[in-house]
Simulated assay, not measured.
Amino acid sequence: MDDFSRSWTALLAAVAGLDDADFARPSGCTGWLVRDLVCHLVIDAQDILITLATPAATEPTRNAVTYWEVADAPPTGEDPLDALTVRLAAAYGEPWLLKFHLDDVGSAAGRAAGLAAPDLGVSTRDEVYTVADYLSVYVLESTLHHLDLIAHLPDAADPPAEGLARARELLTAIAGTAFPPSFSDKDALLIGTGRRTPTESEAAGLGGFGGRLPLVIG
């Protein structure tokens, strides 16, 4: 729960600190500008609010690791929701409108998470999770998107160290194989999800595991 709060709060702060010109820069998500990514974060915040307001009476069916599915290839942008995100981001027009909307729903999502009982069952995607597991999903999601947000903003702050460490733990569990200890948490996440190509020495350290990368999760 604390890792979610730290990661989510840091992500909202990173968006709030963007200059208007930054919204037209590329993000770490292939094909998306920063404005498109911020619009996606608005949708994420809405999903958090909806899920936390959808209690389930049955036992959990998935957890923070089994939530994720590993795809065979990266998204192409042809998915209807991905295409809608780009059009919706453009419709905002002014960056301050996106900032305002994310601060509004994002702050509400953070408050709702803080009020939710960790063991409460909630439902999303026709599956049931405990609140604690569901919010752990968003530690990985928000940490990766924080890295995407600052991919071309060299002076921006990294995600919180605790969130990076927890996100690495989750990605390792999804992969079923540990990343080399020489990898920083940030590098493990970037290389593991295909956001950065490993150097020659990093590729050697990955060994056979490298052939299974990137992990395209969603």
Rank of each mutant, 00 (worst) to 15 (best):
L149P: 09
E169C: 12
G218F: 12
E78P: 00
G163H: 10
H152E: 15
L213Y: 12
Q46C: 05
R212Q: 13
P154V: 13
K186Q: 15
V216E: 06
P198I: 13
A56E: 07
A165N: 06
Y134S: 07
L171A: 07
T66I: 03
A113M: 10
P26E: 11
E69M: 01
F183G: 01
L12T: 11
A64T: 06
S184D: 12
R87C: 04
A165T: 15
T124R: 12
C29F: 11
R166L: 15
H145I: 11
P214S: 04
Y92P: 02
E162Y: 00
D148W: 05
S184Q: 04
V122F: 00
A132T: 10
G93W: 05
D148R: 08
T130P: 03
R125D: 13
H152V: 13
R168W: 06
G121A: 15
R196C: 10
T193S: 09
G176C: 04
P75Q: 03
D155N: 12
A89Y: 08
S7N: 04
L215Q: 14
K99P: 03
G194N: 04
E169Q: 15
D22T: 08
A89H: 08
L98T: 08
D3S: 14
R212C: 00
P55D: 06
G210V: 09
P159R: 11
D158R: 14
G28T: 06
D79R: 10
A21I: 08
L88V: 12
L102V: 03
A71N: 05
